[in-house]
Structures are given as structure tokens and as C-alpha cells.
């Protein structure tokens, strides 16, 4: 087995993942590109497990399993963030996220600036406001 073949494949996949993360606007596609990068790392780990004689056998494969679990956790939290972004902005374009306004939102926990920080809570308020109309 020539280890250079899977190694070069993993290098190309990692480059593709970097390209996708930088190129894509849609947050879901950015997450897909992140998956490509994680899989390239997994392929490196598995290949290194076959080529490098370590003191502990199968260490690379164990770490590949750990990386798979980490990727599952990452995709769960990442998709929660993406769906929250879609709920707030009705768009998942990552270059429309207002990064400069985030510091203004964080200290505005008081009643003065709560409208910007808590727009999804407006929806729960709307539910609460609908209820009296039903009563009427």
C-alpha cells in the first residue's frame, strides 16, 4: 500500500474545504465545507495509523472516531445557530451577519435595548398578545 495516495487525497479534500468555507455565502454550505475538512483530517489520522508504528496500536483510528463524534456535536450546534440566524434575519447568507452590532446587543439586556436582542421573544409576546383577542 502506497501511503502517499490517501495522504494526497486528504490534502486535496482539505484544500477544497478551505475553498468552500471562504467561497460560499450560504451558511449550510459553509457547514458542508467544514465537514469536508474534518473528513480530510480523519483520512490523515487513519492513514497515519497504518503507516506509523506507534507504541499504542490503533491510536489513529481511535482518534478518528473521536473526531467523528466531535463533528456530530459541531453540526448539531452549528445547525442550531444557522436556524436561529434564519429566524432572526430570514436569510442564511453569512456575509449579511452584522458583526459590528453584536457588542451593542450584548450589554443591552435592560428594558431599553431589548427589542434588538430579543426579536424571537417578540414572537412569544405576539402569542401572549393574541390570547386576549381570543378572549374578547
Amino acid at each position: 500500500m502506497r501511503p502517499v495516495i490517501p495522504y494526497v487525497t486528504a490534502a486535496f479534500l482539505f484544500g477544497l474545504g478551505v475553498y468552500g468555507v471562504l467561497r460560499r455565502r450560504n451558511a449550510v454550505l459553509v457547514l458542508m465545507a467544514v465537514e469536508l475538512m474534518l473528513n480530510a483530517v480523519n483520512l490523515i489520522l487513519v492513514t497515519a495509523d497504518t503507516t506509523v508504528r506507534a507504541q499504542l496500536p490503533q491510536g489513529g483510528q481511535v482518534f478518528a472516531l473521536f473526531v467523528i463524534v466531535l463533528a456530530a456535536a459541531e453540526i448539531g450546534v452549528g445547525l442550531a445557530i444557522v436556524l436561529q440566524l434564519y429566524r432572526l434575519k430570514a436569510s442564511v447568507a453569512v456575509d449579511e451577519v452584522p458583526l459590528t452590532e453584536a457588542p451593542a446587543l450584548v450589554p443591552a439586556g435592560g428594558p431599553a435595548g431589548d427589542t434588538a436582542a430579543g426579536r424571537p421573544s417578540d414572537r412569544s409576546d405576539a402569542r401572549g398578545a393574541d390570547r386576549p383577542e381570543v378572549d374578547r
Binding site: 502506497r2 501511503p3 502517499v4 495522504y7 494526497v8 486528504a10 490534502a11 486535496f12 479534500l13 482539505f14 484544500g15 477544497l16 474545504g17 478551505v18 475553498y19 468552500g20 471562504l22 467561497r23 460560499r24 455565502r25 450560504n26 454550505l29 503507516t51 456575509d95
Partner: peptide, 30 residues
């Protein structure tokens, strides 16, 4: 879906080809 992609192609291609060159240099055709 895409931003204009020359910087992305540059960085991604550089990363991929650089890593590939590094690994080819390390393992040759062993």
C-alpha cells in the same frame, strides 16, 4: 450562493497544493 472567489481559490488551492507537496515530499513512493 457564492462570493467572488479569487481569494478563496488562492487560499484553498494554496492550502491543498502545499499540504500535498509536503506529504509527497515526506512519503515519496514508498
Amino acid at each position: 450562493l457564492d462570493r467572488p472567489g479569487w481569494p478563496a481559490a488562492l487560499v484553498g488551492g494554496g492550502t491543498g497544493l502545499g499540504l500535498a507537496a509536503l506529504l509527497v515530499d515526506a512519503y515519496r513512493w514508498t
